[in-house]
Amino acid sequence: MTVTVPGPTLGVVGGGQLGRMLGEAAAPLGVELVVLDPTPDCPAAAVADQIVGDFDDPEAMAALAARADALTFEIELAEPDLLDELAAEEGIDVHPSPDALRTIEDKLVQKRTFGDAGIPIPPFHRVDNAADLRAALDEFGSVMLKARTGGYDGRGNVPVTDPDDAADAIEAVGGPAMAEAFVDFERELSVIGVRGDDEIRTFPVGENVHEAEILRETVVPARTTDDVRAEADRVAREVLSHLPGRGVFGIELFETTDGDVLVNEVAPRPHNSGHWTIEGALCSQFEQHVRAVLGWPLGATTRRSPTVMTNVLSTVSEPRPARLGGLDEPLSEPGVSLHWYGKDEARPLRKMGHLTVVGDDETDDVETLLARASELRDGLRFD
């Protein structure tokens, strides 16, 4: 391929914060973005043209394809059959492959695919009813019940230890589910991987700190051993080898207390745990995704310095217009960057933005960076 600028137009299914950051990364490359999202003036509309429509609306999807030279998605609610139809009828490239989306959007299919490939995963059990869940509890002792589709940020996940709670747990997830054995883990890790035409690249391993099933901080490099980081990278590359199409994938992992690495979940798109790459790596996950989807050469995944990303979650008790204060200190401090997602409404624990704290050099202690990132985040307020 010969790359020229101004470049092509990239169509994106989804216009949330990931679409917004894709647009911010695409503009310096001479690539224009157009997004499809049902919310008028979605976050990405500040940096891209928007088509207002549902993700499964054939007419809206056709309008998106008509304006784009290639298609991708930033949300798993994209409809893979519709993407396949557009690829066939319009002759447009869609990446990652809709087959990758089919594999990943259903957590049961995802786990079966990786298990059949010999990729290390926690034990799991299909759950269609309370009897299935009780059988899983009998086998595993305690489980995390997960909705097979649609869950994120803890939604659709219910921990279950008592068989008497099986019926209520099934009702809580609201549909077909799978039960995964609780993992005795030391820490949660993630690898942001990118597939190009004929190569796979990975960013350095990050460590993820969760609270109430929501990602709070990502620490890079992960506070673990070189052997564990090497194994996490190996497992991530194995996962990528079984997912078709070009693009960025977020791979969440468990490091067990025995030092093993197991795959938790995979996202076929840029991932929250990769936001640190905007300031912390030579080429961000968002620029990598644009490059990969278009078939352009990939950028370097090298880390610039130790980096910590912390999510800014809304602290309001009920929905109200979004307004963030307390920004003077983080904006005055060297090495600290603010990313505001442009969401109009603050809701309890909604992701509204993030802060990134980048160290001066390799001698900086990530513990110090993490403490500073948490302090700065906690000083923010929703007015």
Rank of each mutant, 00 (worst) to 15 (best):
T4L: 15
V5F: 07
P8T: 12
L10N: 12
G16P: 00
R20F: 05
L22H: 12
A26S: 01
V31Y: 06
C42M: 04
A45W: 04
V47D: 04
I51R: 04
D57F: 05
A62L: 10
L64E: 10
A65L: 02
A65H: 03
A68E: 08
L77D: 10
P80V: 10
L83I: 07
A87H: 12
G91S: 11
V94E: 09
P98M: 14
K107T: 00
T113E: 08
G118K: 07
I121Q: 06
P123M: 02
R126V: 12
A131H: 14
L133Q: 02
A135F: 01
A136L: 05
G141F: 12
M144S: 09
K146R: 05
A147L: 06
G150N: 09
G154F: 01
A172V: 05
V173R: 09
G174M: 13
P176L: 06
D184M: 04
F185E: 13
E188I: 03
V191M: 06
F203S: 00
G206L: 02
N208L: 05
N208A: 11
R216A: 04
E217G: 00
T218H: 07
T218Q: 04
R229Q: 14
E231A: 08
E231H: 10
S241A: 15
V248I: 11
E252P: 06
L253I: 14
N264G: 03
P268K: 07
R269S: 11
P270F: 07
H275S: 11
W276R: 02
W276D: 04
I278W: 00
I278A: 09
E279C: 01
L282G: 05
V293C: 12
V293P: 04
W296A: 02
P306L: 06
N311D: 13
V312T: 07
V316A: 08
S317R: 11
E318G: 08
E318Q: 15
A322M: 14
G325Y: 08
D328E: 13
P330D: 12
P330Q: 02
H339R: 15
W340L: 15
W340S: 06
A346F: 08
R350E: 13
K351P: 04
K351E: 10
T356N: 12
V358E: 09
T363C: 00
D365G: 09
V366E: 00
A373S: 13
S374I: 14
L380F: 10
